Computed example of a mutant assay.
Amino acid sequence: MDARTTLAPAGRSSAGEAPAGHGAAPAVQAWGRVRAGRRTADRLLVVLCTVATVLGAIVLGSILVMLIVEGLRGFSPALFTEVTPGPGSQGGGIANAILGSLIMTLIGIVVATPIGVLAGTYLAEYGRTSKLADLIRFLNDILLSAPSILIGLFVYTVMVRTMGGYSGWAGGVALAIIATPVIVRTTEDMLRLVPSSLREAGAALGAPASIVIRAVSWKAAQAGIVTGILLALARIAGETAPLLFTALNNNSWFSANLMGGIANLPVMIYQFALSPYENWRQLAWAGALLITITILGLSIVARVFLQGGKSR
């Protein structure tokens, strides 16, 4: 007998085979079955995810294609120069609705930006883990998920009934309430990404906290903050429900004081799409395409701006 065979440990062959025993072969077989099951489950999940993605892309793509085809039919110079037509009349455009939407969106973002940025700065720089900061975050999360129609009803009760009628001011305030929580959340998240070492360096130079925030924290997070503002702008650009209770609509140019019904694209699209008049429905398609292009453009600008800030 060979010496190597004699000195081999008990239960192990000279060729390095698996230890002898009753549990060796079943263990190998069980492990093989588990790995095969995992591979099957993984492939099945990949197939399901792929099918779901394809179905979603088909649905969204068909909607987009239909919107482009139908919307382009209504595009003409008159679309941007003439006011919305009356019932049964021919022609017309959506110039008054475009201007009304721009004014109310501008009012909303001008009101929401300072409030949102300052509130987000407090949560990130001063509040941190305080009870007041936790309460503000909780209320902000509620506003983020609150239905916009409830915000419209709130502004209707507070402003429209008090002022005695619909107005562009009420519409702008409703849009501001919707945009504020988006800016608050984005500002806080971006400021929390600023390294503490930058703040400590500013404090080491003897600068007060307010100077450090303005010169260091805001400057380092400016790309993210601006991105949040642009996303909030895109969020309120197509809101319909709150404007139904605050600005309503108008088929002519509105007054300079913004009192009375104010023409706007979202409500115009909603009303014209349900009408029996062919030209009204065509204007609704054109307005929907215009809003889609605007929101898409804002989203692209926000992403480019954010990527530019990260590269710097």
Rank of each mutant, 00 (worst) to 15 (best):
T129Y: 10
L150A: 03
P87L: 12
A52T: 14
T5D: 15
L258P: 14
S311C: 10
P147H: 01
A174K: 07
Y122T: 03
T294F: 14
T227H: 02
V158L: 14
G92C: 00
V69N: 05
G165I: 04
A170L: 10
G308F: 13
A170D: 10
L230W: 13
A27F: 06
S148A: 08
V51K: 06
T113C: 12
E278L: 08
A78V: 01
L106V: 14
A288W: 00
G116M: 03
W280D: 00
G309R: 04
A215W: 02
N249C: 11
P242M: 11
S197Y: 06
A223Q: 04
I58D: 01
T113N: 12
P87Q: 14
Y166L: 04
G164F: 10
A204K: 09
G116D: 01
L243T: 13
V184D: 07
V304L: 14
S13P: 05
A112V: 08
L298T: 00
W169I: 07
R192A: 02
G309C: 05
L193R: 13
L118W: 13
I300F: 13
G238R: 09
F245Q: 10
L191E: 11
F272C: 02
R38I: 09
V117H: 05
L153M: 07
Q90K: 14
T292Q: 04
M259D: 12
I103V: 15
G206L: 04
P208N: 07
Y270I: 03
V301Q: 03
L306Q: 15
T113Q: 08
E125G: 07
C49R: 14
L298G: 00
I115V: 15
L298W: 00
L205N: 10
A179R: 06
V155G: 03
L258W: 14
V51F: 12
S299N: 15
N279K: 01
G297L: 02
G86E: 08
S76Y: 02
L233D: 01
T187F: 07
S145V: 04
A201N: 06
A209G: 05
Q29K: 11
S217R: 05
R4T: 09
L7F: 12
L123Y: 08
P85H: 02
I109K: 08
